[in-house]
Design a protein around this nucleic acid. Structure first.
Lengths: 193, 193
DNA sequence: TAAATTAGACTGAGTATTCAACCGGTTTTT
DNA sequence: AAAAACCGGTTGAATACTCAGTCTAATTTA
């Protein structure tokens, strides 16, 4: 792995675990074995490191989620919602550090003043919300999901799954054990009859 | 208002808007008109300011929520859930700064090493989760809510409402317009038949 | 040879916290 | 009554420290 990638990988862990401001270049240098000068040779400043991480996260998240939806075979729209939400949980586990980073306030604050950051964040969120909406629209066509606003419902579902993932990272309750119940509740609120 | 309260109020706003680390004593001094020394006369250090805010938040949140549940008249457990979740949204609007603060990562990180902080956080979350659970148990008694794990379901409902509030603060989508739909979905996933 | 990397000194702008001094009012002493 | 001591609250300059980012000169790698 190139030194640049090593830096990026360590920065992802440090930024997600400790926060952007709380991570110093000196620490990043020590944990990677790269000299401080090397870090600034590859990235023009600290924020640039952060944006690179966000770009990588965006690419990977979108690639994985869209591939899952394309390759997956679903018997109905309702099944597709179950698959998509479950895959969200799976992805949050696979890419734990990146999700931790996204759940911090820093990227959202940066997005308010930095268009590049905003673009990355919107792309990530739209990917999921659109995926959920597709499933709802499919379900309304095949009759597994009742008539309702697909736009609004997909937003609510996204805020639900995202809320659960956050819950797990904060570790206040044993949120990991809630998956089965969540799916059941989700089905009930969407299905016909 | 005493100088101490002025400091506390300004710190609540600054910590919630900018973050703990990102807020300097110098800025707090400037916005309150209190000298830096005065701040450390009233609080033994920066963290002490934060814990005072958290304590105030805890007291206010619990007082308001429990009073609402006690004084409120509900026709059924299902109505009580609607009332309790709606009141959560209302409270999040009324105490916007405090909720913003709670939604940052800092209090949760501090809670891992500081028992006082952990105590405050747990008290706040338990208050809501227990309130939701009471409503579910009541609904199961009066027949408005089906058989299900009251514990797990109350956790999921809490993560849902909390997720929506977060959504609103991040302002990525127009989450404020989702309240009516949320209530409807909530009813469907809980009620019998 | 050119690009990548190193160690580390350095700058300049912050940072939290400390501290001796000060202020206005009240009580105690003379 | 005048002087002295006392008090909580307040001040802002001083302290010791951290940090991002720069720079250089030497070395390694491709």
């Amino acid at each position: 792995m190139s030194k640049k990638d090593t830096i990026l990988q360590a920065a992802t862990r440090l930024f997600s675990e400790k926060g952007f401001k709380e991570t110093s270049i000196a620490e990043l240098s020590k944990t990677t074995g790269a000299a401080e000068g090397t870090i600034f040779y590859h990235f023009k400043n600290k924020e640039d490191i952060f944006l690179s991480i966000l770009e990588d996260t965006r690419n990977r998240v979108i690639e994985e989620f869209e591939r899952y939806l394309k390759e997956g075979k679903f018997d109905s729209g309702l099944d597709m919602i179950e698959g998509a939400t479950s895959f969200y949980f799976y992805l949050a586990g696979m890419m734990e550090e990146q999700f931790l980073l996204l759940h911090r306030r820093h990227p959202h604050e940066l997005a308010e003043v930095n268009p590049v950051c905003r673009e990355h964040l919107e792309a990530i969120y739209n990917c999921f919300v659109n995926g959920f909406e597709q499933a709802i629209l499919l379900g309304q066509k095949d009759g597994s999901i009742r008539k309702m606003s697909s736009k609004k419902t997909s937003l609510i579902i996204f805020s639900m799954v995202d809320g659960l993932v956050r819950f797990k990272t904060y570790n206040l309750y044993d949120a990991g054990a809630l998956h089965k119940e969540f799916i059941e509740l989700c089905r009930r609120m969407l299905q016909k009859k």
